[in-house]
Design a protein around this nucleic acid. Structure first.
Lengths: 129, 129, 129, 129
DNA sequence: GTGGTCTAGACCACG
DNA sequence: GTGGTCTAGACCACA
């Protein structure tokens, strides 16, 4: 899964796991039918309490992206890819709206923001190719 | 002050007050020497716990933007304008960077984001004219 | 709230709390704007671990029936009544479908089931008036 | 045996096998003296863990409906027909009582439920003709 | 005071 | 082995 967790981040660990799993599914790294790493394995790998992983998995299950196969583990569902892409889009839209609201309150206009965006973009060290 | 608080926002109420005060000072709405409304008055106006206002004021004091005038109240300092503009810039930059990081993780590029910005901008119902 | 929990029931405690809260809201016992008992109070009253109550509350929050008021507690939302009634209906439909499927597998027909229903109904000691 | 298993059902797989075996015996599809399919064969046919079939068979044995014939397999007992009919009745009654209890809690009355039953019945895609 | 998160460790049903 | 539930108790931010 290649999930990495920053325990000192303000964003909850279970949410970090959740988000990275959503993106992994959206990217096709976790195809439908694949079994997720077991709660115990992943918690050991991330050096995190099993319950924290459980919570992330439960959220994924609630979103319909994974389903429990009793005695086997959690399986990526057929609809997971679509759901994950929708959710990813929603996450981005929400964050951008929040940022815009604050930018507007700061007295910036749309052009200012676009300039900021194009200026800041290259500074991001993302995993994009 | 014309501060408006959204109690159901994910951002803490004290931080909403803080941010709007910073912006008000940066815009010149609160010139140096001006007295802030008393904790009691503002908390009553915002229908908010007085402790919440106290915390916002403490933060402003810590930032050097207001100072206590014994027996009178909290006064906007001479350096407040400069400090507030720096901080305003930092706040907006931070938020935008966060949004960009997630947008990049979702596979968008700079153009996509600018399109989003210009599309979303008019939908904001801010207090700007 | 008048919630009662049977710790030895096969249905999870958090789900018992959840279901009874849903019904309480649907019945109007918990009007919109009302604050739920605090996690600590309810857990003490039910002689149950606070986390168990937390889980039930989180589920209610996810359903949009309650919302956290920071520092105050959990508040019944305006839409809670409608949501709870919908959910209550869905719960009943699901259970009846499951029972019917088994009844059909047992070789009963619709008339047999209706006879069973009218025969069993008076034996229920419910809280209905 | 014509047993069909739904792995994603909330009811445990071993219990699905058990119930359907009980019903098969009650219907006379499995007369006394008949040999059940071997654990190995049935688990292969149902694409299910052999231990799951073992557990279902153990339960049937515990109920006195089948008995081990050393070297041959599991045989339907003489008393199986009577036992199975009693149990079938109990199973259906239990499920219906559970559904009724919830329907009552939701404020429905006996007529409402009967209407639901006759409305839902044709929608079942059972193996019945 | 409130809820939110996390850890540690237990027991259970299921396969 | 798997996940599901529960307990006990800790620390934090917020009001």
């Amino acid at each position: 899964m290649n999930i990495r967790v920053r325990p000192d981040s303000p964003v909850p660990i279970y949410e970090q796991i959740l988000t990275q799993a959503v993106f992994a599914i959206a990217n096709g790294d976790l195809p439908a039918g694949e079994l997720l790493p077991s709660v115990r394995d992943l918690s050991a790998e991330l050096v995190v309490n099993p319950n924290t992983v459980v919570r992330a998995y439960q959220e994924l299950e609630r979103l319909g992206m994974i389903a429990a196969r009793r005695g086997l583990g959690m399986e990526v569902t057929a609809e997971a890819a679509k759901i994950s892409r929708d959710r990813r889009k929603a996450i981005v839209l929400t964050r951008i709206r929040e940022a815009l609201r604050e930018a507007a309150a700061a007295g910036l206009d749309a052009d200012d923001v676009c300039q900021l965006v194009t200026a800041e973009w290259p500074k991001l060290n993302t995993s994009r190719k």
